[in-house]
């Protein structure tokens, strides 16, 4: 059976980290860990770690949703993603976090 497990961690009002993990027969198939901010009525992704349709990597977007950087990296644990986001918050897009 396929299960999509969504975990949303509240960071501040209008800021969150969302984890989406798709399990097939109990095995993790795809994941997306995204730091999102609420702009008007829409949640905008600023940074995302995922392996959907490609290798493990990190994407950085601007506040209009335009991809500004993509870096290949090993899969991060969700707990580590939460720590990184809590440290940098909205300024995360201006910091080189590829080595963290």
């Amino acid at each position: 059976m396929m299960i999509l497990k969504i975990k949303r961690v509240f960071i501040s009002r209008g800021e969150m980290i969302e984890s989406m993990e798709l399990y097939d027969q109990g095995k993790l198939k795809n994941y997306i860990y995204a730091y999102k901010v609420l702009k008007g009525t829409k949640w905008i992704t600023l940074v995302r770690w995922d392996n959907v349709e490609s290798m493990d990597h990190m994407d950085i977007y601007d506040e209009n949703g335009t991809l500004i950087n993509q870096v290949e990296m090993e899969k991060k644990r969700f707990e580590d993603v939460v720590k990184i986001v809590r440290t940098f918050r909205r300024s995360i897009i201006a910091v080189d976090i590829s080595n963290l």
Binding site: M2, I3, L4, K7, R8, F10, D24
Partner: peptide
């Protein structure tokens, strides 16, 4: 795939 969605929200 007739799967299910489970969601957990953590607020501190």
């Amino acid at each position: 795939n007739n799967g299910q969605i489970d969601e957990e929200v953590i607020i501190e």
